[in-house]
Design a binder for these strands. Structure first.
Lengths: 250, 250
DNA sequence: AAAAAATCAATCAAATTCAATCAATTTAAA
DNA sequence: TTTAAATTGATTGAATTTGATTGATTTTTT
């Protein structure tokens, strides 16, 4: 049996069974242990698999390691909690929109759903999504340097090509009168468009955003379900009059 | 059995069975090992198959692509030279397209022109462009993990919204007959579209790309000016019959 | 913690496969 | 026809791949 054929067999066995013993390879290929060991070494060097004592394993994308950016973020722990909860709302087969921003970024490591497609305008999100092998579409448009978000006419137009199951939006302010707000009107319009294109819309807002308001309006409270970690019953009750609120607890 | 017929038999056997042993070819063609070896060498040079110890294997175009990381270390010095020269072609006020790829990436540090706007489909390019405070538009679309390029229907459509002064395209092969080529048809179409949308088109090809050809055709030689560091006068003369060639010297 | 079992990397010699060469044959051109 | 060029199959020593063996390392069992 020739080298490429053996390699093919080895990789195929691994596809079927995440971890495979050396002797199983020997049986499948009818050649010596030495040869298999050499093959495994080569394939490992090519990053096609990972050798383990006794055989080889499928290498899965490395788990959630925190980037410098993530570490330096404010309220990181709360955002992780909210992100983790929000990601649990994604169901198999969903087509979702992830808004640019640090809160939605925190969702990505926790995404479990299979066969999903993600549309995003956040440059920072892309690496994290590809790392998890999630098919990712990026909206076109102008890049805003400060937030690494795609905005502008092109981005809006690009986004309108899609039809979405759910969208997850970060905001800067949530206020009973002014609704959901953010400082940049361009970004606000982008978020608004995503909400209108989605069957279900979720706004992610840690407790520091409540009762605040920024310059540009995104949408009314009732246009999206709010996910927060605020625990003040009285404050929450106020919002629950106007919209659905889901509270994440530590 | 005549040469073209033997070649046909060899390729057909490979189609049926991804990996074929030398002796199987000998039996199928009824000629000597030497002859088959010579045939395999020729066919390998024509990129029709890949020789392996003991026989030959079908080469899968897409799988053979090197990852971005692997590429980034290869011919880096030459790519910098070419990139530096190419960037000098950009003039104040230009609207340019930078194709994804390591060669065009090398252009960015050297860009001097003022008031330019850049459109790109390369994720890797974005950071570098923002770093230099160059207004950057990104085409929308599906991200191809391996090359970090944006491709697909969305990307094409997004790109067609723009009108470009110049485009700079990376290729995998330049060949007198097959023109400019690259392994992935989706990426080829993207590059092709950019060329058609631009007043002037430039192809960046270090000397390793000359006389090579990949699977998918991008354009004919005469559709773009070729920038290369190849110095073989005879070879260059051949291309200069069909297109404009600009040679960068160390 | 020590002993036993399994797995490993390193090495070697045998077998296979390879590229290079050459003479014989065929094909093409003068 | 004669000559030159190209193609072929055989032969050679060199290079590669292979399976077996060694002692070292790791894991499991006692």
């Amino acid at each position: 049996m020739l080298t490429p054929e053996r390699h093919r067999v080895i990789l195929q066995l691994l596809q079927e069974k995440e971890v495979v013993k050396l002797h199983e390879f020997v049986e499948a290929t009818q050649c010596s242990e030495s040869t298999i060991r050499r093959d495994l070494s080569q394939l490992e060097k090519q990053k096609k698999l990972k050798r383990v004592h006794g055989g080889a394993a499928l290498l899965q994308q490395k788990r959630e390691e925190l980037s410098v950016f993530e570490k330096s973020t404010k309220n990181i722990h709360e955002k992780q909690l909210i992100g983790k909860y929000a990601s649990s709302l994604i169901q198999d087969g969903d087509c979702i929109y992830l808004d640019a921003g640090t809160t939605t970024l925190q969702m990505i490591p926790y995404i479990q759903a299979k066969n999903i497609v993600v549309v995003t305008n956040g440059m920072m999100h892309i690496d994290a999504l590809l790392e998890k092998d999630i098919p990712t579409y990026v909206v076109g448009g102008l890049i805003k340097k400060k937030t690494n978000a795609l905005i502008g006419r092109g981005a809006i137009h690009s986004l309108q090509q899609y039809s979405l199951d759910k969208c997850f939006i970060g905001v800067n302010g949530v206020h009973i009168d002014s609704g959901y707000t953010t400082p940049d009107p361009e970004e606000a319009f982008m978020k608004q468009t995503a909400i209108h294109l989605s069957r279900q819309a979720f706004v992610l807002a840690d407790h520091s955003k409540l009762n605040e308001s920024a310059f540009a309006k995104i949408a009314e409270l009732q246009e999206a379900t709010m996910i927060t970690n605020e625990t003040d019953e009285e404050l929450l009750a106020m919002y629950e009059v106007k919209t659905t609120v889901e509270v994440v607890k530590a």
